[in-house]
Each structure stands twice: as structure tokens, then as C-alpha cells.
Design a protein around this nucleic acid. Structure first.
Lengths: 153, 153
DNA sequence: CTCCTTGCAAATTGTTTGCATACCT
DNA sequence: AGGTATGCAAACAATTTGCAAGGAG
């Protein structure tokens, strides 16, 4: 049900732009949707889509992710590990949007998701002050995790 | 004067770790320092250092930037354009630290720096709740800039 | 029937690595 | 002297692109 809705939204936006509804595009969005919260690389998506549709090419996955991002159906984050990651847009998450807050340990490179959303008022303030319309944000904290702290330094 | 101080700090930290003080390392830090606030790529740094020291290799710049980052003398940010950027650590900026707040327009890809620091208390809260020791943070807002808004959509 | 889209492979680009030489300490 | 650092070129990995063939509207 939730599923159907985002698929319909995709079709709608594709048609708006005169683009075509293809099985590949639907599958890529669907995989992202079924893995909400799982920061996925293009390869991750490719592997999963391949299970249903082995003929798909990796390049298509890259092109499709780019497209979905342009249409604001998916979010894009970078965890500084050299590859871009995608996840279903926060608009579609059932529960509260958890927009990409992460703690990244500079010693062991562990990534710890961090919820909470104290930034809504800040977004409003930006819009008022600068006229920039905020759609989303990404917040990363760099430091040393508890385990690495224990091990000294 | 300010200049001398960070150079001394670099030497100190290098010696602490049994590493060597080289002209290349000093020049890389110095270029970053003279361009405080200019999110620089490795190539940018390479080009500038080359003016004083044409023999330097790009690989050395990469290695040195990594090293300076490990030592927390420089900050590292990603503006989602496919390359990592560096700037002199906020510890060394004369004025208030402006730790990496940016508005990124999804239409024209313009990057607008955004000051302010409402996150100090949040950092404290994270330390208390999770035991993660925060050293720095990076905050990006994605949206549509005023100019692109005017031009419709 | 006309474009848009795809798959494949080749090309790019940012970054890293191996190695012999050069340089700090 | 002894190990670290450097420059160069080759290696890599993620992503993009060209193009002929396939598919949606």
C-alpha cells in the first residue's frame, strides 16, 4: 500500500517530464523502499535489483539513482568512505524523518546513526534570513567513539 | 605571527610521532592557512604549492593532506562534487569558528557558506548520551537558492 | 514510428600505492 | 647510518559516457 503510493508518484513525475516508465526504474525505487534506512551504494542496489532482473546494467542503476534524486524521490548522503549512498526520501518514511544525522569515528571509522531533529527551526531561520528554500539537510559529527576512547586515545 | 604558530604546532606534532619536518609539509599547511575559508581540493593545493616548489608531486599533497587531517590541523568537507576539500582547522581561524555550514542549491549547485553555531549544545548532549567525543561537525542544507526560486521552480 | 532508455564496454576522474631515490634527524 | 618521505608512474575504484539495439508512448 505504502509501496504503491511511491510507485505511482514516480510514474506521475516521469510522465510530467515526458520520460518513460520502465521496469528498471520501478525496481530501483522499490529496492530502496524495501530497504528504507539502509544507506545503499549503487552496487548494493544493483545486487538487489539483479535478483529480480539479472539483465540490468550497473550504469542504468547509476543513471536511475541520479534521476530519482533529481526528482527528489530519494536522498543522497556521503559517509566519507568514497562512495555516494542513497536511501528512500524521508518524505516516504512512515515514522518520523530521521534526516541523516551520523556520528563518524575518526579512529575506527564506525558510523553511528543519530536521530532527533533539532534543526527544523534553524531551517526556518535560514529561509527567513537568506531566501534559500531548504528541502533537506545532512549533519555529521566527527570524533572518537566510546570504544576507541576506552582503548586509549 | 599567526602563521608561525601553526607551523610550530605542526613541527611539534610531527616530532611527537617521530615523523619528519619537511618543506612539503610546511608548504601545504601554509597554503591552506593563507587561503583560510577557501575549501580547497588536493589539486588546488598542489597548484599553489607548485608555485613555490615546482618539484612537489600530487601524491605527496594527497598524503600530506591526509596526514594533516589525522593530526586535526585541517578540516575536511565534501561539497558533493566528487572531490574532497580541505581547509585550515577551525581552531586556527582568527575569528569565530564557522564550522562548515553550507547551503547547496540543487538546481544550480551553488554553494553558500552559512555561519552561526547552534550546535554546541547538541554536541554536548551527544557526548552525554552516547559517550561519543565530538571533535567537529559538518552541516549541509539542500534546497533551492533565491535566484533559482525566482526563475521559477 | 519516434525518441527515450538500456546494456555493454571503454573512458574518466579522484585518489592510492609500489618502489627506488632523496632527505630529515 | 637508518628509517621516513618523496616523486613518478602504474594501479584502483567509483562513476560517466558513447553507441548500437531495444522498448515505451
Amino acid at each position: 500500500m505504502e509501496q504503491k503510493k511511491t510507485e505511482e508518484l514516480l510514474k506521475e513525475r516521469l510522465r510530467e517530464k515526458g520520460l518513460k516508465v520502465t521496469r528498471q526504474r520501478i525496481l530501483v525505487l522499490s529496492v530502496l523502499e524495501q530497504n528504507a534506512g539502509r544507506h545503499m551504494t549503487a552496487e548494493d542496489v544493483y545486487d538487489l535489483v539483479s535478483e529480480d532482473y539479472p539483465e540490468i546494467g550497473l550504469a542504468t542503476v547509476y543513471r536511475t539513482l541520479q534521476l530519482l534524486w533529481d526528482m527528489q524521490l530519494v536522498d543522497r548522503i556521503s559517509l566519507d568512505d568514497g562512495c555516494v549512498r542513497y536511501e528512500i526520501g524521508h518524505l516516504f518514511k512512515g515514522d518520523a524523518k530521521h534526516n541523516h544525522h551520523h556520528l563518524i569515528c575518526r579512529i575506527c571509522n564506525k558510523v553511528i546513526p543519530f536521530g532527533g531533529d533539532l534543526l527544523d527551526e534553524l531551517e526556518q531561520q535560514i529561509e527567513d534570513e537568506t531566501g534559500f528554500h531548504v528541502l533537506d539537510h545532512e549533519l555529521k559529527f566527527y570524533g572518537v567513539c566510546r570504544e576507541c576512547l576506552k582503548k586509549g586515545r
